Simulated assay, not measured.
Amino acid sequence: MSFFKRLFKGADETIPETKERTLLNLRVGDFVTYDLMDYEVTGKIHYNDGGYTWDAYQLAGSGKTRWLSVELDDELEVGMYETIRIPGLEPGAKKVTHDGRTYYLEEQGRAYVKAEGRSQNVHGKNVDYYDYTDDSEERFLSVEVWGGDVEVSYGYEIEEYEVTILAGS
Score class of each variant (00 low, 15 high):
156 Y>T: 08
156 Y>C: 06
21 R>I: 07
141 L>F: 09
51 G>K: 01
74 D>A: 06
33 T>V: 15
8 F>A: 07
169 S>P: 01
123 H>A: 14
3 F>P: 03
64 K>I: 00
35 D>I: 01
134 D>S: 10
16 P>Y: 05
18 T>H: 01
148 G>P: 04
133 T>C: 12
30 D>S: 01
165 I>D: 01
107 E>Q: 08
110 R>P: 01
51 G>L: 04
70 V>M: 07
6 R>V: 12
164 T>I: 10
83 T>V: 09
37 M>V: 10
65 T>H: 02
57 Y>E: 03
84 I>H: 05
134 D>W: 06
151 E>Y: 11
166 L>A: 11
152 V>A: 04
157 E>V: 07
141 L>K: 03
147 G>H: 13
155 G>Q: 11
91 P>I: 05
130 Y>A: 11
126 N>H: 09
162 E>K: 03
72 L>N: 12
19 K>V: 15
47 Y>V: 00
22 T>N: 07
96 V>R: 00
95 K>C: 04
66 R>N: 05
4 F>T: 10
94 K>F: 12
155 G>C: 13
54 W>F: 15
2 S>W: 15
106 E>Q: 08
75 E>M: 08
21 R>T: 10
96 V>N: 04
79 G>I: 04
129 Y>S: 04
145 V>N: 07
104 Y>S: 07
143 V>Q: 13
137 E>S: 09
107 E>A: 08
26 L>V: 07
80 M>I: 15
28 V>T: 10
116 E>Y: 07
98 H>M: 05
37 M>P: 00
166 L>S: 14
106 E>R: 13
64 K>N: 02
31 F>V: 02
134 D>E: 15
22 T>A: 09
9 K>L: 12
76 L>E: 10
142 S>T: 08
76 L>C: 06
66 R>M: 15
116 E>F: 04
128 D>S: 15
85 R>H: 05
141 L>D: 09
52 Y>W: 11
163 V>E: 03
86 I>E: 03
55 D>M: 07
58 Q>I: 06
